[in-house]
Design a protein around this nucleic acid. Structure first.
Lengths: 157, 157
DNA sequence: CCAATTTCAGGTGTACTGAAATAA
DNA sequence: CTTATTTCAGTATACCTGAAATTG
């Protein structure tokens, strides 16, 4: 820890480039910031919106499945869903074949909310991808998917 | 265990591929999950660790600058820093030239913590980038940086 | 006075651990 | 009995709005 701390105020203590871990985080923070603002009138957060889109694509998931998909505990996911259910954006029904599980689905109001904000969210994605051609976009999607796969393969999950 | 592998072929409500916005979020969630686990013994969260690394690279930032860097309000950043200061991982000193501002710096304990966890964090990054060659990594870094730039140029911030 | 930074007060959302109830 | 899912209770953190104090 014998690092030199010379400048008091005009700092320039660069210790190499920010990591890719950090770059991912930065993009996610920027996206969330825009998304939260965009969704403000709806009263739901970026995270809640994300959960709705997952349910839209994969209707009938259980709380536990959704939690694993988002790398959080089932309790954390249950908290989030409580808010969405209170606003009647999702419905919960016991699975008759496996009465432990609760199947989640969008209500009509939930689907309507996604319809309403879909265009603005797509414009946000378009803003992020400004000046990227089709090849760049494909590369980005591919690289991100490989990151996700590598992180979920080995340990944990 | 084979009985629960019912596939959404029946539901068939696929509404296109997940967006790139979602892919970014997924990678970030996976990273945070690993990072939180890895940092557990230290008692600090992935978010707090990230703030420490930013201060390591750019010593002497103010709360407001750090907040803008992370796309949150100064109040939210102050909350986070309160925890780090309580554990004496950072120090706060009034800027003599501008007595409104408070300059933030790592303490020796803060730097030691980064030193201690640095190798494990780099291994995590390596896990994420498994099987990506140097060209892929460069592409990913470039594409993410362009995303960040596009999101911060136009409106907001 | 105006603008930027920080802080205080308060409220909600996010996420965890631990533990219990239920059912396959 | 064992395991998976869900829920309850409690706690720490993250993030916001609004307002006040300070300084440039």
């Amino acid at each position: 820890m014998a690092s030199e701390q010379r400048q008091p105020a005009a700092a320039a203590m660069d210790t190499g480039p920010p990591s890719l871990l950090y770059s991912v985080k930065q993009v996610e923070l920027a996206v969330r910031s825009h998304l939260d603002e965009l969704l403000r009138p709806s009263g739901i957060t970026a995270l809640q919106y994300t959960a709705l889109t997952v349910l839209h694509r994969r209707s009938g998931l259980t709380i536990a499945e959704l939690a694993r998909n988002s790398f959080v505990t089932p309790q954390a996911m249950a908290d989030l869903l409580k808010v969405l259910q209170r606003r009647e954006l999702i419905s919960r029904t016991r699975d008759p074949d496996n009465r432990r599980q609760v199947r989640l689905r969008l209500t009509e109001a939930g689907a309507a909310l996604l319809d309403h904000y879909g265009p603005a969210v797509r414009r946000l994605e378009e803003l992020m991808l400004t000046e990227m051609d089709a090849g760049d976009r494909e590369s980005l999607a591919d690289l991100l998917n490989r990151c996700r796969a590598s992180l979920t393969r080995g340990p944990r999950l």
